Simulated scan of single mutants.
Amino acid sequence: MEFFEIKYNDGSVVKVKRVKRAELKDLITLQQDLIAAFVRNYAGIGSVISDDTVWSTIEKLTTMLPVVGGGLVELSKFEDDLNQLAKIFFTQSTDDNGIPLNMIAVHEGSEWYKPSLISELHQLDHITTSQEGIKKARPETVE
């Protein structure tokens, strides 16, 4: 995967590229924070993004994301698209209705939820990143 696409409310599409190597550590930390919030809210994406601290983290992460052709992702152009926000920042795993799955419920045996588009694009170890996020939210759930 060399990029992923974001569809803005006006129908236009941007292609998101990887951040520079120097920004990867910050990106990983922000992803952990978002996953922790996602777990704390039992995968309720509306509950997660309504939290001002979480939204601030999403805004910060978004300012890091370059797009093909120049510029950065414009969060205001899709901030009401809950399913797209979930896929970009939390997980691509969904139920039959396109609703994001709770990652704790999905983690059974050898199964694990799909990474966010950001994690997949940057080839992050989403299991470790997620476990760190889960530890932040619910330390009793991860050994």
Rank of each mutant, 00 (worst) to 15 (best):
A37E: 04
G69Y: 00
V13H: 05
E79S: 14
T63L: 11
P66M: 01
F78V: 04
A86P: 07
K7Y: 04
F90G: 01
H107F: 04
P139K: 06
N9T: 07
S76F: 00
T63H: 12
I49W: 00
G71L: 13
E5N: 08
A37R: 05
G98H: 03
S110L: 13
Q84I: 10
V54Y: 09
P100D: 02
H126V: 05
P115C: 08
L65I: 14
D95K: 08
F4K: 01
M103A: 07
S110Q: 07
K136L: 15
S110W: 11
K114C: 11
N9K: 12
D51A: 02
G46L: 07
E2F: 05
G133D: 06
Y42C: 13
S76T: 13
L65R: 10
A43Y: 02
A105M: 12
N83I: 08
T141M: 12
R40D: 13
D51K: 07
D80N: 14
R40K: 10
T91Q: 08
Q123S: 15
N97V: 04
S76Q: 12
Q131S: 05
A86G: 07
A36Y: 10
R40W: 00
L117V: 03
T57D: 09
F78N: 04
G71R: 13
T63E: 15
A36W: 03
V106G: 00
P115Q: 11
I118T: 00
V16G: 03
S50W: 07
K135R: 13
G70L: 13
E23Q: 15
R18W: 02
A37Q: 01
D95G: 11
E132C: 09
S116W: 13
N41K: 00
S50R: 13
I134L: 14
N102P: 04
S116D: 10
T128G: 11
S93F: 02
D10Y: 06
Q31F: 07
Q123P: 01
L85K: 08
G98S: 07
L101A: 05
N83P: 05
T91F: 09
I49N: 05
I6P: 01
P66H: 07
L117N: 03
F89T: 08
V54A: 06
A36E: 10
E143H: 09
M103S: 00
A137R: 03
G71I: 09
I127N: 00
R138A: 12
F4D: 03
I58L: 12
L124C: 10
I45E: 03
K136Y: 08
I88Q: 02
R18C: 04
